[in-house]
């Protein structure tokens, strides 16, 4: 128990955060790459074709993990935004701002692969259905968080606090958007994994396996990318602290 508390405190201070996460980067990247390669080969060549959608459903192996990540990362941004705003923790600011670009990237990827999936399935690249629309609005939320941060580039501390505020507002807003858009209209197929095993749920293990592997791979890649950016963020904002210069004297 004491170890966990100690670890928690260490992660809260920029120098030890920088030092500890430095050891994680390489394993995370390797893990992410290996899992991606395995997951994609498994998904593209070994998973059986879907009886309805044929081979086109294989887009799912990148589309669905990306969609999960787009929401998961926004959740992380919102939570670290709350921590950054209330307790003014520098590491939380770093995590928040480091998560935004990769989250926006996954959101864009979700939209684009969704379009490529939509064309063969519905005969159109874009359809204003509930999920696509709310995913697009999610992209605006990401752009908003990054936009307000870069607008106040002369004062990073203030920029991070305002970005945290925008992220928190977005977090509150997200369920409202979700609900309102759903109410508006919905023709999208049901969620890919349904616990109740409904009509659209994937029951076949050989299809589910690559999906879960890819979900893990994207999580590891996110962790790698986020930590990498967070470390750069800390270096940039703490340039005049002594721990930063020590990092470079040793090298």
């Amino acid at each position: 128990m004491n170890k966990i508390v100690k670890f928690y405190h260490e992660m809260g201070s920029p120098p030890s955060f920088y030092r500890i996460t430095g050891h994680w980067l390489k394993p995370l990247l390797i893990l992410a790459l290996l899992l991606t390669v395995y997951g994609l080969i498994d998904g593209l060549f070994f998973a059986p074709p879907d009886y309805q959608q044929g081979d086109s459903y294989r887009i799912m192996f990148v589309h669905v993990p990306a969609a999960w990540m787009s929401m998961f990362i926004y959740f992380i941004i919102g939570v670290s935004g709350i921590i950054a705003f209330v307790w003014r923790m520098k590491v939380a600011e770093a995590v928040m701002m480091a998560s935004a670009p990769i989250g926006a990237l996954f959101t864009a990827l979700t939209l684009l692969t969704g379009m490529l999936w939509g064309k063969p399935m519905w005969g159109t690249y874009w359809d204003w259905d509930a999920r696509m629309t709310s995913e697009l609005i999610l992209l605006f939320l990401y752009i908003g968080v990054m936009g307000i941060y870069s607008a106040y580039d002369d004062d990073p501390r203030k920029a991070a606090r305002l970005a945290a505020l925008v992220a928190i507002i977005g977090l509150i807003n997200l369920p409202i958007i979700r609900y309102s858009v759903e109410w508006w209209t919905s023709i999208h197929q049901g969620a890919s994994i349904s616990i109740m095993g409904g009509n659209s749920g994937i029951k076949e293990w050989s299809m589910l396996r690559p999906l879960l592997v890819m979900a893990l791979a994207t999580k590891f890649y996110y962790l790698y990318s986020m930590l990498h950016r967070a470390r750069s963020y800390l270096l940039r904002t703490e340039q005049n602290k002594s721990w930063v210069s020590k990092q470079f004297i040793e090298n």
């Binding site: 609005i137 605006f140 752009i143 908003g144 307000i148 807003n173 609900y179 858009v181």
Partner: peptide, 18 residues
């Protein structure tokens, strides 16, 4: 800030518009 304002406010106003 005009353009940024629109980006920030649009997700908030989307449900109202709907």
């Amino acid at each position: 800030g005009g353009m940024l304002l629109s980006v920030l406010i649009m997700p908030l106003l989307a449900p109202v518009l709907i």
